[in-house]
Design a protein around this nucleic acid. Structure first.
Lengths: 118, 118
DNA sequence: TGGAGTGTGTAGTATACACTACACAGCATG
DNA sequence: CATGCTGTGTAGTGTATACTACACACTCCA
């Protein structure tokens, strides 16, 4: 099973808290715009992960990649969705083709596209 | 604006209905597993599109690409989601890179990956 | 002319999502 | 010893999702 969202957030927050008292549940909750008790429950996986917007803000505060944090919450960023929805046949085919390729191969595609004259 | 989900389904169903009386609201609804009145409202865009499962069955009945029909409903197939969620950094980067490339270029990537020795 | 099939209107429901509001106990420190 | 901060428990809320159940009017045709 993948590391749970809440557990992961709690670890990150507590790590930052060592250096910076601004990372209490209360203060962090305030900065991302939720109630402390809610964040507390989320961190203990007693509540489901919050909305995309809050997760993105959380990622910002924790210095994490929003896409990765969203993934831990089982969500795909809505901007990625929009890209796929704009050309569903193309992207569906491509993504399914890449499904079983190793990371190295996918990375290579990423690089080729970035550098390339496609 | 994109063709609405309901309108599109209705057109498809009515087209098939010309040749085959099995494409009444009632019969089609039964085959996909919903109430006729619900399908009727969906087709008139009075109700939001149904769940992924029903849309996939609908696509099957109408001879449409499930991914395309799902896209019209603003949904990304859950199996695609799972693929992305398994490797969020990689797929997020790739998809964003492909965002502004023309269809031709994306198709080319699709072909290269299909044929290629990646 | 009545029985089957057509689409549709009204009303209601169960579940999930994404939270808030408030209270409370424990610790620390000035 | 009280003030302030820590995390957390309980209860409730508004909105969306994804439908069902039933009834009604109309048309076709045997």
């Amino acid at each position: 099973m993948p590391a749970s969202f809440g557990r992961y957030v709690r670890r990150r927050r507590e790590a930052l808290r060592q250096q910076d008292s601004a990372y209490s549940v209360r203060q962090l909750a305030q900065r991302i715009g939720v109630e402390p008790s809610y964040l507390s429950k989320v961190e203990r996986d007693e509540e489901a992960p919050p909305s995309e917007e809050k997760i993105v803000r959380l990622a910002g505060e924790l210095g994490e990649d929003p896409d990765v944090l969203l993934a831990m919450a089982g969500k795909v960023s809505s901007d990625l969705k929009r890209i796929i929805l704009a050309r569903p046949e193309l992207f569906s085919t491509l993504i399914r083709q890449l499904k079983d390729l190793p990371d190295r191969a996918v990375s290579r595609v990423v690089r080729e596209v970035r550098d390339g004259k496609w």
